[in-house]
Every structure is written in structure tokens, then in C-alpha cells.
Design a protein around this nucleic acid. Sequence first.
DNA 1: ACTGAAAATTCTCTGGC
DNA 2: GCCAGAGAATTTTCAGT
Lengths: 159, 159
Amino acid sequence: MSSHILDQTDRDIISLLQQDARLSSKEIAAKLRKRPTTIFARFNKLKALGYLKGSIMLIDREKVGMLMAVFINIQLNDHHAEALYEFQRDIKAYSEVMECYHTTGQVDFVIKVVVQDMLAYKDFLVQNLSKMQNVKAYTSHFVINEIKRELAYPLDNLV
Amino acid sequence: MSSHILDQTDRDIISLLQQDARLSSKEIAAKLRKRPTTIFARFNKLKALGYLKGSIMLIDREKVGMLMAVFINIQLNDHHAEALYEFQRDIKAYSEVMECYHTTGQVDFVIKVVVQDMLAYKDFLVQNLSKMQNVKAYTSHFVINEIKRELAYPLDNLV
DNA sequence: ACTGAAAATTCTCTGGC
DNA sequence: GCCAGAGAATTTTCAGT
């Protein structure tokens, strides 16, 4: 690992950690046929260089009572810089809004909202989204089945 | 933690682990003013009961060369059970498709595709998506800015 | 469910290659 | 950049309350 170019070992470590963030240096070392201290040093470097941005425990969304996930496509009235900034700042503040992306196409923003139930969703729409001045139109797409949700990027022919 | 009802400590542990999956029992114990072994026992139970579904290390998507994220809304021709099942099985198999949701509304499926660059995206469309018989229409929404991507569910007034 | 102590394992630092 | 050794810290088990 000379500077900012990842070699195969770096990619292997990242790939393994994307599958299980709690792997120990020893466990990674065993899989890659290296020494634990070597893995430890690379892990620290990957973290220092900003490749690794923290780890999270994935939990069963429905089991903890967050039964409803919704994708909402949003169109704005005013697309000037200041108006865009304000919308982003405000939408980001809602805890129901888990994800928000500025996109190209017919739609300006794609957001993912996760709430307990339809009542909570209605509250979000009526009390929050509908009151945002710059929102021209939105369409809700309720998730009825999660076919795939892979959060680990494939790093095979890369970097 | 009697059986399947989460108490405040359980929710606290889950919340902390959603922020950092690598927290040790000792670290969690210190934050919650409990003993490490108590946290350890609860951690094992939460895992055994299926609340915790594994951990992942988050990495800098653009830094590792995955420069392009796209949401694609897909409409199908045939909505019968067998056709739906086949579509889901096939779309799931593509490594470029990170997420796929069956949704209500004008759109049948929302998928998130992550690739290196526009060339890789073109290849995915031309060689894969366009060749799926049951796909009637699709619209691409390129992510030009990620405003928010929160993966930890808020468990405050819940369960 | 929680505690406390002990054993096994891992982390983390230092120095040498 | 890799490896080895050793002390410190942690994980994990287990018996007791």
C-alpha cells in the first residue's frame, strides 16, 4: 500500500469488512493468509485515508416496528441555488427521511421514508412534506417487497 | 428482556450498534452504565432473536471508484405471479443492482444501480436490462448529489 | 437477568527486517 | 511494507445470586 492506490490485499480487506464489520484482524489475516499485525496496520491506514467510513449493525426493520418504507419522487417549483439549498437542509432534518438524493430526470429528488405505519406516514405527508413551500408535486411508491438490499460494493475489477 | 419485547436497554444497545457496529461490550456498558457481561448477554440474545442481522463497514463509494449511482423505475408488461417471480430472480442476480424494491404506484419496481462510470452503466442497460423480456419501460434518475443516507432506524418511541 | 472472577483471545505498541 | 514478541485490554465462559 504505497500511497492512495489500493492493491489486492487492500481490496480484499475492504471486501471482507463490507461483509462483516466486526471481523478481527486475526480473522481477516487467516482468510488472506497474512499476519494479524499486517492486517492491523493496513486497517488503520485504510481508515486514516478515508476509505472506511464507519460501521453499522444492520437490524430487522420490520421486527423493530418500522413496518413502512416508501420512495417518494419530488418535483420542486424553484430550482435556483438558494431554494435548492433550503429544500435540502429542511428535508434532511426529518428523522423519517432516511435517504435523499438529488437526481436528474423528470424528478428532482428521490427520498426514502421509513416509518412505523400508515398513520405515521400520513402525519409525515400532511404535517411536513405538504407544508414545504417549494414542493410542486410528489408521488409515493410504497415498498411491498424488498427483493434485494446489498450495501457492499463489488470491488473486483476496480481502483 | 423477558421474551420478544424490547426494553429500553435493548433499544439503547441497538441504537448504539446502529451507529457503530464495532463497539465493544465494555464501551456500550460504559455509555449505558451497565456491566460489560450484561451487555454481552443481551447482545447475544438480540442476535439469537434475529434483531441484529450482521454488520457492515461503510466505505467511500466514490473513492473506491464507484462513481455512478442511478435509481431506475421499472414497469413490467406481465404482472402474473410467475412473470413477477422470474423478473425478481433475474434482476437480483446482477451485481450492479444493489437494491430492488417491489412498489405500489405507477412504477412496479424501484432499483438502485451502482457502477464505475457511464460506460459501465450503458453496458448494464444495453446488455442486461434492455434484454429482459418483461420490462415494458424504465426511466433512469442519476444521482448528482447524496443529501442524506442514514441507515440507522430511529427507535425512540417504538416496539 | 445481573454479577464477579478467571481463562482464552485479541489488540496495540515497539523494534527489527 | 512486513513480521515477531509481549504487555494491556477485551472477549467469553461459568458458577452464584
